[in-house]
Design a binder for these strands. Structure first.
Length: 300
DNA sequence: AAGCTTTCCTGGATGC
DNA sequence: TGCATCCAGGAAAGCT
């Protein structure tokens, strides 16, 4: 997509310009910023109804959702990995943004205008509307009733790795969970069963900061290097969330489509450009049908 | 118009 | 041999 085209055309243009109008895939920082952006506007508010215009996202939106949550008050907005959990009395709405999903808080008057064809769902409150837009429809909106038990036991959440900011996320954990495994460390990070929230962009960035080659077998990385990697992951994600925090106001807007942000990347989307540390050309390879960027001099 | 994106699922391979 | 785990590849949809 744009990555390829832009990369060819603007190879030597500063990162800021190159990525200024591009919409990054939602990874953990984007989801967390979304959570912080919408939470103050919907917590303690009563859902009036849910308008579903496109029932088929990645999975079907449960039929009768409006009846299930209508009249219920939102008590909390949490996040688990890249899943947003909107809690009401009877259970949880589980929302995933997929690749192109966004949630925005709009004034209720927005209901009077025709939504565009990608604006699939409106969660309608008294004064506002939480609108889900997702052109590629890889996102999801699901329902987990309280009767069915804790939402953490939902099939999609049960097998997720630890949260990167929890005390459980340690170098020792990464080390233990990768012994004997031949999978490339980049792939192991993306799999999300050790630590959640590290997507394609932040995997490349974190590995650069930890000076680890993305194709290195996860089982052949020493504990001391996982110490660096765990720290790099936390730092990278925290920085991205901090940058996103400055754009929170964009979540409440009648027409703004921004709301995300751009970290200054060391390697991501910089194929052929000089490494910001050593000056050698950044390389691009494909792992598991996805692009990886790294510095052949700094990373081993 | 083929490549790019995320995640879950499938099925073959591997290991105890 | 059987069961569990690992890991590569495929699918979904829209954009350029």
């Amino acid at each position: 997509m744009i990555v390829t085209r832009v990369d060819k055309i603007t190879r030597n243009v500063p990162t800021l310009f190159k990525t200024a109008d591009r919409f990054p895939m939602p990874e953990l920082p984007e989801v967390e910023v979304t959570r912080r952006g919408i939470s103050p506007h919907i917590t303690e508010q009563v859902i009036e109804r849910v308008d579903v215009r496109t029932p088929m996202l990645r999975w079907p939106i449960p039929s009768g959702l409006s009846a299930l949550v209508g009249g219920q008050r939102v008590t909390r907005v949490e996040r688990r990995g890249k899943y947003l959990l909107i809690e009401v009395g009877a259970g949880w709405l589980i929302v995933h943004l997929g690749m192109t999903g966004t949630l925005r808080v709009l004034p209720r008057a927005a209901l009077e205008r025709l939504p565009d064809k990608h604006e699939h769902v409106d969660i309608v409150f008294g004064q506002t509307v939480l609108r889900f837009r997702d052109p590629r429809r890889f996102g999801a909106i699901l329902w987990h009733a309280r009767d069915a038990g804790d939402v953490a036991d939902h099939p999609l959440l049960r097998a997720l790795g630890v949260e990167p900011f929890s005390p459980d996320f340690t170098a020792q954990l990464m080390f233990d969970r990768t012994r004997g495994r031949s999978v490339a460390i980049k792939q192991a990070l993306l799999a999300g069963d050790i630590v959640v929230g590290v997507g394609n962009i932040y995997a490349s960035e974190s590995l650069f900061r930890a000076r680890i080659h993305p194709a290195r077998a996860a089982g052949r990385i020493a504990l001391s290097r996982y110490v660096a990697l765990a720290e790099a992951i936390r730092d990278t994600l925290a920085e991205a969330i901090a940058k996103g925090g400055s754009t929170l106001r964009d979540f409440v807007s009648s027409d703004g489509s921004r709301g995300y942000f751009q970290l200054d990347y060391f390697v991501y989307d910089r194929a052929g450009e000089p490494c910001k540390v050593c000056g050698n050309a950044i390389r691009q390879i494909v792992q598991g049908q996805r692009s990886t960027f790294y510095c052949p001099h700094c990373q081993h």
